[in-house]
């Protein structure tokens, strides 16, 4: 009997600690009130609830996105309560999380969908009367309140033009690809290809799918350098891959005589800006983080001001050696 009690109480203790530790440990709630003593809810406390379903919190861009969203929500904590969940890029998990969050009857649902298929849960929430703010990736149809994001085609275009101008309209560009099938990858490629088309002297090598990962790009670049094929510029679909490609080039025994141009996209890490300052990378194009704008729109919705436009496009920024310091100062929330 003693053992039964022991096991039961141990289990119970673990569960209670597990649930209670949320607020001190890793909770993303910005207001206290989800502890066992003081259950939070839709009726307890009169603040409306804003929930945020994040696709994942793994890569640096998302980390910066999370940090800036949380900071913006914290600044609004007198206006609403804020909760966040991340879904490891698994749409099925994200559907489950949204369904569960909706049980708390939030007024606004911010969601950055992992995949289009998350729309089933998003549309259910919208039909229930919740305001839905899509961040970054969109969904087809019109069952959402507003979509806030960057324009990857435009970013690709500007990156392509930058590279072509740096090469004086003549040279070979190695394009290191992001995750296959993802909209961001297609848009960043097509935008750049459209820009390169205007320069007949530019030819493009379509590199491998390196899944936006530094390690994968580094391995690919090491192999590519082995072939001895000439190239004048590297355009990577994100900064992590640009860093990976640069590191491979830096360590390689045989390399092109003149240092190729390295250009990435995202501009969300201090590391990248530092490498640009050091002359290792040449430029990056900021992929704007929609979190703070999303919180701003959510606060307006709670005040009764629905956004006029269904789509808000955030502008990009070129970061190169000339403005790197200014950029760092303007964006204190950059990932480490």
């Amino acid at each position: 009997m003693k053992l039964g009690l022991w096991a039961c109480s141990a289990f119970a203790a673990i569960m209670i600690v597990g649930c209670g530790s949320g607020d001190s440990g890793g909770s993303t709630s910005t207001t206290p009130g989800t502890t066992a003593e003081k259950p939070a809810g839709t009726t307890a406390g009169n603040l409306p609830l804003v929930v945020f379903s994040q696709a994942n919190s793994a890569d640096p861009w998302r980390q910066q996105f999370d940090a800036e969203t949380k900071a913006a929500a914290e600044a609004n904590k007198s206006a609403f309560k804020f909760e966040e969940q991340a879904a490891e890029d698994d749409p099925n998990k994200q559907i489950s999380q949204i369904d569960t969050l909706m049980l708390e009857s939030p007024k606004v649902l911010l969601v950055s969908p992992a995949e289009m298929s998350v729309r089933t849960a998003i549309e259910k929430a919208f039909d229930k009367g919740t305001s839905v703010i899509l961040l970054d990736r969109g969904i087809p149809g019109d069952k959402y309140t507003v979509h806030i994001g960057g324009d990857n085609v435009e970013i690709g275009k500007q990156a392509g033009e930058y590279i072509a101008k740096r090469l004086n309209g003549k040279g070979i560009v190695l394009m290191i690809q992001g995750k296959g099938g993802a909209d961001a990858t297609n848009d960043r490629r097509e935008g750049a290809m459209a820009a390169f088309k205007k320069f007949p002297g530019i030819s493009v090598i379509q590199g491998d799918d390196c899944k936006y990962q530094r390690q994968a790009a580094q391995s690919y670049m090491e192999t590519f350098l082995q072939t001895g094929k000439p190239f004048d510029a590297v355009y990577a679909h994100n900064d992590e891959m640009a860093i990976g490609a640069y590191q491979a080039y830096d360590h390689a025994a045989t390399k092109p005589k003149t240092k190729p141009i390295f250009v990435g996209v995202d501009g969300c890490q201090q590391e990248v800006v530092q490498m640009i300052k050091d002359g290792k990378l040449d430029a990056t194009f900021r992929y704007p983080d929609p979190g703070p704008k999303g919180i701003e729109v959510a606060a307006e919705i709670l005040k009764g001001n629905k956004p006029k436009d269904k789509k808000i496009i955030l502008p990009t920024e070129l970061v190169d050696k000339s403005n790197a310091d200014k950029y760092l100062a303007a964006h204190p929330g950059l990932a480490k």
Binding site: A10, I14, G26, S27, Q85, A87, L103
Partner: peptide, 24 residues
């Protein structure tokens, strides 16, 4: 999973506890 979400506990904290439960 549902309880952790309703209590506003981060997914990653939940994962940590799941490991403890498996061991137990």
């Amino acid at each position: 999973n549902v309880l952790l979400i309703l209590d506003g506990v981060s997914y990653y904290v939940g994962q940590g506890w799941k490991g403890v439960i498996i061991l137990l």
